[in-house]
């Protein structure tokens, strides 16, 4: 892997400036300060900046600046018409002390993420592992079946048809026919059912990028390792998985975790489509819905920015925490 070396050199070159560059290029640079060396390198690589500029400028405008801006706006009241008023922590205090619905939203978001994140991650891995030993043609077909729900757009609305609240809904119809219930259940208007159902549908659409990454990762594990393992006393597929497969595909496991965690916070659209906006008694109301409510409908941008900022730190925090935990596996 050539890049590993160059990456390392970049880091050291940036950290210790001239000295590391001197080692790398075998030219004596002790005469130069770090800033001067960096400037010289920047001029030498002008073309690199020209290549990254179009992407990076847009990336800053549409991703980096909005995040920073919502952090700043979260300390103000802003309604898009008047100049923002600085109110310091008022928005955050209001969120946690005065906004009962936000507390429900936080609770629901955490439940949703804590269930869908790990479950979709495990499902992606276990399914990828199961189909890994099928013949290539069968594997491609099974991959398609598992992957299709996540790319088919609004196809998850079929769950609304299956669990529709009248006797023509498939589930209600069958339950009534079998005599288990006597009147149809309004599944997506019922506080008991709405959350679990949304979670099931979210999981149904969750075998996405992480799943493909695991399938590919399993294919790249060096087969001689399995043979060596068998000689060294690996006795069944579980030991093989634990001692050989998992350590070999750690990069994919880390990447898959990012995809699964980010995804687990992004199912707001599915909930809105199935359970309505707002869901009955806020029973499936998440932080995303609260954000949409205050930002997109009430135009309380300062308050919405506080929600967005909290959501941002929640997602980044969950990702960094899980990545830290996963990188300890097998060490």
């Amino acid at each position: 892997m050539p890049d590993k070396n160059t990456d390392k050199t970049t880091v050291t070159a940036e950290q210790s400036g001239g000295a590391a560059a001197a080692v790398k290029r075998a030219v004596n640079r002790s005469d130069m300060s770090r800033a001067a060396w960096t400037w010289k390198e920047m001029k030498r690589n002008k073309v690199a900046y020209a290549l990254i500029a179009p992407f990076m400028i847009l990336f800053f405008i549409f991703t980096v600046i909005p995040v920073v801006l919502s952090l700043l706006l979260s300390f103000t009241t802003f309604n898009m018409l008047e100049w923002p008023n600085f109110v310091f922590m008022d928005n955050y205090i209001r969120l946690f002390l005065d906004d009962d619905i936000f507390v429900i939203a936080v609770k629901n978001t955490l439940i949703f993420a804590a269930i869908t994140g790990p479950t979709s991650y495990l499902m992606s891995f276990v399914m990828a592992w199961f189909i890994n030993e099928l013949t290539p043609k069968v594997r491609a077909f099974v991959t398609l079946i598992f992957y299709a729900p996540s790319i088919s757009g609004a196809v998850y609305l079929i769950w609304a048809t299956m669990f529709s609240g009248d006797a023509y809904g498939y589930v209600n119809g069958i339950l009534i026919y079998l005599g288990i219930i006597s009147t149809p259940i309004q599944f997506f208007r019922n506080e008991t059912f709405v959350m679990p159902l949304c979670i099931v549908v979210a999981l149904w659409t969750s075998l996405g990028t992480a799943f493909l990454s695991f399938i590919a990762g399993l294919q790249t594990v060096d087969h001689t390792l399995y043979e060596a393992g068998a000689v060294d006393g690996v006795r069944n597929r579980w030991q093989e998985l634990w001692f050989i497969t998992l350590p070999s595909m750690k990069p994919q496991l880390l990447f898959g975790a990012v995809m699964a965690i980010t995804g687990s916070f992004g199912f707001g659209g599915i909930v809105t489509a199935l359970a309505g906006f707002p869901s009955v008694n806020y029973s499936a109301w998440t932080i995303m819905h609260h954000l949409e409510d205050y930002g997109g409908q009430r135009f309380e941008v300062g308050y919405a920015s506080a929600i967005a900022t909290l959501l941002f730190f929640l997602m980044i925090g969950a990702n960094l925490l899980v990545n830290k935990l996963l990188s300890k596996v097998g060490q």
């Binding site: 909005p66 995040v67 919502s70 990012v258 916070f265 707001g268 954000l291 997109g296 967005a308 960094l320």
Partner: peptide
């Protein structure tokens, strides 16, 4: 940027 989704930046 892969660690959060676009909901966060939608309003700004």
């Amino acid at each position: 940027s892969l660690m959060f989704n676009t909901t966060v930046s939608a309003i700004t």
